[in-house]
Simulated assay, not measured.
Amino acid sequence: MNDIDMNNFEEDTQHGRFLTFSLEEEVFGIEIKYVTEIVGIQSITKVPEVPAYIKGIINLRGKIIPVIDVRIKFGKEAIAYNDRTCIVVIDIQEISVGLIVDNVEEVLTIDDDAISPPPTNKTGFENRFMKGIGKVGGKVQLLLDCERLLKNDEKEIIEDIA
């Protein structure tokens, strides 16, 4: 019997798989390999002197997790949280952070050939959060680049409050 490298096996099974969530009418996707868990909205302890989209911290089974309201980070209007609001906990470069989203949709497999590059304009502007645009069953998902979701100064803030 041959040895199986579980790291490669795990990577292969996660390739092309995205957790999708909604903000208003838009559907976003993040690579499932970054997601550690999904929890319902819970009590958030505010932290002074951080950007408005960093809502504070939660205590998740003894681990302090900073949480970001993705609506506010993406320039959308803040809304009251409800029973559909979730916190998607992701790990980015060994930093755990919770993303507050309106609603978790589903896990989708999107083939590489069904992903287009993110849009750019004539000035060379590129949406730094986007990895691409996924097309599945006539629907479009904006695929986020978790590695670029936080700027360096934001990572420092997150690390400091964690």
Rank of each mutant, 00 (worst) to 15 (best):
E10M: 07
V140D: 11
E126D: 07
K122E: 14
I92Q: 15
D69N: 15
P119V: 00
L108G: 12
R71L: 06
E105A: 14
G62H: 02
P48H: 10
I32T: 05
K135S: 10
K63V: 10
M6H: 12
I72V: 12
A114K: 04
I110R: 11
I72G: 08
L149E: 00
I95P: 04
G137K: 10
D3N: 08
N127F: 08
N121Q: 01
K131D: 07
I65S: 06
E31M: 03
E31C: 05
F9N: 02
S96P: 06
S43Y: 13
D113K: 07
I65Y: 06
N121L: 09
D3H: 15
P117T: 07
G138A: 01
L99A: 06
P51Q: 12
D111G: 04
I157Q: 08
H15C: 03
K76W: 14
G40H: 12
K151T: 10
G40R: 05
V47W: 02
R61V: 07
A114Q: 14
T13P: 05
F125M: 04
P66G: 11
L108A: 04
R148C: 03
G40Y: 03
F129I: 03
Y53T: 04
G132C: 00
D145F: 01
N2S: 15
D102Y: 09
N152W: 02
P66A: 11
F9D: 05
L143H: 08
T123G: 09
L150P: 02
E37W: 05
I65E: 06
K155R: 14
V136A: 00
D69H: 05
G62C: 01
V47A: 01
G132M: 01
V104A: 06
K135L: 12
V104W: 11
V104M: 07
I58H: 10
L142Y: 14
M6E: 09
T36G: 14
D12I: 01
I57G: 09
L60M: 11
K151W: 11
P117F: 03
V89C: 03
I57T: 09
P66C: 07
E94M: 09
I65R: 00
E11I: 01
L108P: 01
G62L: 02
I30G: 06
K63H: 10
H15G: 09
E77H: 01
C146S: 15
E24V: 05
Q42K: 06
K131Y: 12
N103T: 15
S96V: 12
N82P: 02
I30L: 06
E154F: 07
T45G: 09
P119R: 07
V70P: 00
G137S: 11
E26I: 10
F21A: 05
I110K: 01
G56Y: 08
V50K: 13
I115V: 13
S43E: 15
K131R: 13
I158V: 00
R61H: 14
G98R: 05
I92H: 10
T109S: 14
I44V: 08
V97A: 14
